[in-house]
Each structure stands twice: as structure tokens, then as C-alpha cells.
Amino acid sequence: MVIKIKYFGLIANNLISEAVLREGSDVTVLLNHLIKQYPNNKEMLNKATILVNKSKATTSTILNDKDEVMILTVLGGG
């Protein structure tokens, strides 16, 4: 299945915008897929707020084909 990905915040937007994952994969699988390709972003990916189709998701949220995942790196302060 194909997952669309958007990044906001600290993670650069030139990361992959689509990921092909096995059916039944959850958010953890997607994050590990990204960390493998972009190990420098591990810190941020692991603490990011994740939305799936604009709703709050957890690491165990199951993904479906054509889902849109937003990876939001939120910072306190300012």
C-alpha cells in the first residue's frame, strides 16, 4: 500500500513524500522505515506528533492504502 507523508516543523521537507508499506503496517512501521533512510532525523521522528488523515494517531494506529500521514515536530517555548 502507498502512504502519503507531509512534514512540518523541524524535519526538512525534502524527505520522501510517499512510502510503500505492507498491508496492515502501523505508524511504528512507517517511522522505522523513515528512520532507516534518515537516521539523522531519528530524534525528531521519535518525538513527533503524528496525524493520520488529520486525526491524532498513536504508534500503533494501523495504516491503510492512500492514507495521508502528517509528521509534526512540535517545540515548546518561544
Binding site: 512540518f8 516543523g9 523541524l10 506528533t49 496525524l51 491524532k56 502528517m70 509534526l72 515536530t73 512540535v74 517545540l75 517555548g77 518561544g78
Partner: peptide
């Protein structure tokens, strides 16, 4: 990120996350 773009770097993510 803070050193490059300042505290506003997180503004879009903050708006979308809630």
C-alpha cells in the same frame, strides 16, 4: 533548527497538531 530559523520554525507544526 532554533539556531537556523528561530522559535517560529515550529509554527506550522504547532498550528496543525493543536
Amino acid at each position: 533548527a532554533f539556531g537556523t530559523w528561530g522559535t517560529g520554525v515550529g509554527t506550522p507544526a504547532s498550528a496543525l497538531s493543536g
